[in-house]
Design a protein around this nucleic acid. Structure first.
Lengths: 126, 126
DNA sequence: GGTTTTCTACGAATGATTTCGTACAAATAT
DNA sequence: ATATTTGTACGAAATCATTCGTAGAAAACC
């Protein structure tokens, strides 16, 4: 199932921190935000995420350890839906809009160009 | 303000059809979906969208004519938020993921490459 | 051993989105 | 002219997301 916006915030923390506890995630959230988020709020969200399969958890000790679903899968799913919803299914439309913003560095542009050339030559992405 | 997913579906209809009536939008929605959507549901959504500024409407005759906010603005706003939420702010990350799916045609790839080269040469997007 | 802290589970309040029923006016058809 | 259809407005139910309080068990502290 798809993550909501709040769930995505938590996924980002988990992606960057690796598998960790509710407490650690909650502290991270409260570092990066003016508005205090209660511990049990984070707990509940992560429990729901576990039911949805967005995280797995190791419950072998009392303090559970949560791990995010693979970033690549989640992002691909989100992207598919977003492209459908907002760009009528056209990934190229989205890319053009994203690059058109002028916020992408020349290094990144070069990297993207390299990927495109690989794709044009039929190479797999290794 | 940001459109919700249902609102986006309506915006897409309006973008593709041009300014039109609630009735026409509702019929379009019911063509492309198995689940029947009531007329007043669509009406209410479009009224709310009007309050949010996502559409404008001409109320000079009894049957109101709705027009979508400019696609480019809406998509840019959505994109900014999506990049932040799902890609930690990296538009390049999103682009790489979007192109990596192998669903983009060579024509589109060429067009994107052309845009990148324009950007690299410091040209504006005309 | 008793107190305090730390944990999970869970129910329920709050708030936003989506859905539709009903009221009632204007237009159309008979 | 009366009845039917087509339109808007609006209230409120249904659903989903977010938030947190409270209960009770396990662990840590004194």
């Amino acid at each position: 199932m798809q993550p909501t916006d709040s769930e995505l915030v938590i996924l980002q923390v988990l992606w960057s921190a690796g598998p960790t506890t509710v407490r650690a995630v909650n502290e991270q959230l409260n570092n990066n935000s003016p508005k205090e988020i209660g511990y049990t709020t984070t707990l509940k969200l992560m429990q729901l995420m576990s039911e949805k399969g967005l995280v797995t958890r190791d419950t072998s000790s009392r303090t559970h350890i949560y791990a995010a679903a693979p970033k690549e899968n989640v992002q691909k799913n989100l992207l598919r839906r977003f492209v459908d919803n907002a760009f009528g299914g056209s990934a190229a439309g989205l890319v053009l809009r994203a690059l058109g913003d002028g916020q992408t560095s020349s290094e990144e542009l070069a990297e993207i160009k390299r990927l495109i050339e690989e794709l044009e030559n039929g190479k797999a992405n290794d």
